[in-house]
């Protein structure tokens, strides 16, 4: 009875890392079938990889607000 879970690559860092923490806590706390354990392990590994790739690839997005308009903004170097 596993819930429908969104694909890992669509998650934000916060969502992915929080789910990873939840998986670890569940695995540590509850008795699970081997099948469930392996499923969760696989999902956990995907989440960890996704988080690492977010950290590696992220580039700061800068925008600016003029009244209610949000426009792109680049600081002149």
């Amino acid at each position: 009875m596993s819930k429908k879970r969104p694909p890992v690559e669509e998650l934000t860092y916060e969502e992915a890392f929080t789910e990873l923490e939840t998986i670890i806590n569940t695995l540590e706390a509850d008795e699970q079938t081997l099948d469930e354990i392996l499923n969760k392990f696989e999902r956990g590994q995907e989440l960890a990889r996704h988080c690492a790739s977010l950290l590696d690839k992220a580039e700061l997005k800068t925008k600016q607000l003029a009244g209610d308009e949000i426009t792109d903004f680049e600081l002149d170097e």
Partner: peptide, 15 residues
């Protein structure tokens, strides 16, 4: 993140 991955692997291995 490394710590979480390590714990995950450890739990599964011991299980």
């Amino acid at each position: 993140l490394d710590e979480a991955s390590r714990r995950l692997a450890q739990i599964v291995q011991s299980e």
